[in-house]
Amino acid sequence: MSAQLTAAERVAIARNPQRPNIMDYIGALFTDFFECKGDRLCGEDGAIVGGVALYHGRPVTVIGTRKGRTAEENLKCNFGMPSPEGYRKALRLMRQAEKFRRPIITFIDTSGAYPGLEAEERGQGEAIARNLFEMSRLTVPVIAIVTGEGNSGGALALGVANRVLMLENAVYAILSPEGFASILWKDASRSAEACEMMQLTAPDLLRLGVIDDIIPEPEGGAHTAPVVALRQVDRCLHRHLAELSKESGASLAAGRYQKFRQMGAAAPDKEEQ
């Protein structure tokens, strides 16, 4: 485990372009990956990758946001900022997973849903809302792993899971620290200050009950020893999937509902009343 890092340092590590991305996870953790493209409505979004693969010999549906390492890669995947087509593709694959009784594993690393003109025209808000609605009642195991930065509704749209796991240096928040500072203080340059206040690190979120487990990273971050990091993710994922696989479909849906139902229901404020 890394020594105590500040929240701003973790944000920097979470954004490191050399950090393992969705393609690395698919390559290392799964076999026989078959990528499925398109939302079957109007388009294909490179910012979200999804498909069917074997995980320790068992068919699963894998979905994740895709960030590139080079400028060229990033043009193809829009820097990991999905459009409505991406969320609708993800929903299509989740429904398919339900049909074939496959567990769903999502990987989250996005600075947020794309705030563009066309994305708005095609209903970015509706696409995210629909995913939240449908994910809440899936009857197969759903595990979400926040691997880098998970920002805003754009991250949550893949995050309504039975278990939400987070890499040690990943961050998960309402929006980017820059956006937060600019909304609250009209000054994006105060983002380091915002990082410390936002409670966006894995230990913060575990304490708040938003996530279920922290996956340790090698000293300095996952990019310093990717093989070790990937093995840790595999071990944690495998354990949680084995636990969830014992549950019935109804119990999985009910458990997921209860998990989100209790969030922010007056409990965290108890000591003041």
Partner: peptide
């Protein structure tokens, strides 16, 4: 903003 991630989670809660 001041309720951070717990504000975000209300989206999942109300939708569910």
């Amino acid at each position: 903003m001041q309720e951070g991630i717990l504000s975000l989670m209300q989206m999942a809660k109300t939708s569910a």
